[in-house]
Measured scan of single mutants.
Amino acid sequence: YHADPSLVSFLTGLGCPNCIEYFTSQGLQSIYHLQNLTIEDLGALKIPEQYRMTIWRGLQDLK
């Protein structure tokens, strides 16, 4: 799967570019796929713990 530029820029902007593959490997290719994820969902996606809160907060800021 290839990540949408919106996803790449979002995660890169948060300092988490190495997390892109965790999302794309589950078929979550764009920022729209991420918008309703919970902190528990990020854990289920195996996002490293040190990035989960950062990503979750970033998603809240998009709403």
Rank of each mutant, 00 (worst) to 15 (best):
Y1R: 05
Y1V: 15
Y1H: 07
Y1G: 03
Y1I: 15
Y1F: 15
H2I: 15
A3H: 14
A3Q: 15
A3D: 14
A3F: 15
A3M: 15
D4N: 05
P5G: 15
P5T: 15
P5W: 12
P5D: 15
P5E: 15
P5N: 15
P5L: 14
S6T: 08
S6K: 07
S6W: 04
S6F: 07
S6G: 15
L7F: 03
L7Y: 02
L7T: 05
L7Q: 00
V8A: 14
V8D: 15
V8H: 10
S9D: 06
S9M: 04
S9Y: 04
S9I: 03
F10I: 02
F10Y: 03
L11T: 01
L11D: 00
L11I: 13
T12S: 08
T12F: 07
T12I: 09
T12G: 14
T12C: 03
T12W: 04
T12Y: 09
T12A: 11
G13N: 15
G13S: 12
L14C: 02
L14W: 02
L14K: 05
L14I: 11
L14E: 02
G15D: 07
G15P: 01
C16T: 05
C16M: 11
C16F: 05
C16H: 09
C16D: 00
P17W: 05
P17C: 07
P17Y: 12
P17D: 09
P17R: 10
P17T: 12
N18Q: 09
N18R: 06
N18V: 08
N18T: 07
C19E: 04
I20N: 03
I20Y: 06
I20K: 04
I20M: 11
I20S: 08
I20W: 03
I20E: 08
E21N: 09
E21S: 10
Y22M: 09
Y22P: 07
Y22F: 11
Y22T: 09
F23L: 04
F23T: 00
F23D: 00
F23W: 00
F23E: 00
T24S: 10
T24N: 04
T24C: 06
T24Y: 04
S25P: 04
S25G: 12
S25N: 11
S25T: 15
Q26D: 04
G27T: 05
G27W: 01
G27K: 07
G27E: 10
L28I: 09
Q29M: 12
Q29H: 14
Q29I: 15
Q29G: 10
Q29W: 05
S30P: 01
S30M: 07
S30T: 14
S30H: 09
S30N: 12
I31E: 06
I31C: 10
I31N: 07
I31F: 03
Y32I: 14
Y32R: 13
Y32F: 13
Y32Q: 13
Y32E: 14
H33Q: 13
H33M: 07
H33K: 14
H33I: 04
H33D: 10
H33R: 08
H33P: 06
H33F: 03
L34M: 12
L34V: 12
Q35R: 13
Q35E: 11
Q35S: 13
N36R: 12
N36I: 10
N36W: 07
N36S: 13
L37F: 12
L37Q: 02
T38F: 02
T38L: 05
T38V: 06
T38M: 06
T38W: 02
T38I: 03
T38E: 06
I39F: 05
I39M: 05
I39N: 09
E40G: 13
E40Y: 04
E40T: 07
E40V: 06
D41G: 11
D41C: 03
L42F: 11
L42A: 02
L42V: 06
L42S: 01
G43V: 10
G43T: 11
G43S: 10
G43A: 06
A44Q: 12
A44R: 15
A44G: 14
A44N: 08
A44W: 07
A44T: 09
L45R: 04
L45S: 03
L45W: 03
L45C: 10
L45G: 02
L45V: 10
K46T: 06
K46M: 05
K46F: 05
I47E: 00
I47P: 00
P48H: 02
P48K: 04
P48V: 00
E49R: 12
E49T: 09
E49Y: 04
E49M: 15
Q50G: 14
Q50D: 06
Y51S: 06
Y51N: 05
Y51E: 07
R52D: 02
R52A: 07
M53V: 08
M53N: 11
T54K: 13
T54R: 12
T54C: 06
T54L: 10
T54V: 14
I55E: 01
I55W: 00
I55A: 00
W56G: 06
R57P: 01
R57M: 03
R57S: 06
R57A: 08
R57C: 04
R57K: 10
G58D: 02
G58S: 06
G58L: 00
L59G: 02
L59H: 01
Q60A: 13
Q60I: 12
D61A: 05
L62W: 13
L62C: 06
L62I: 09
L62T: 08
L62D: 14
L62H: 11
L62N: 13
K63M: 11
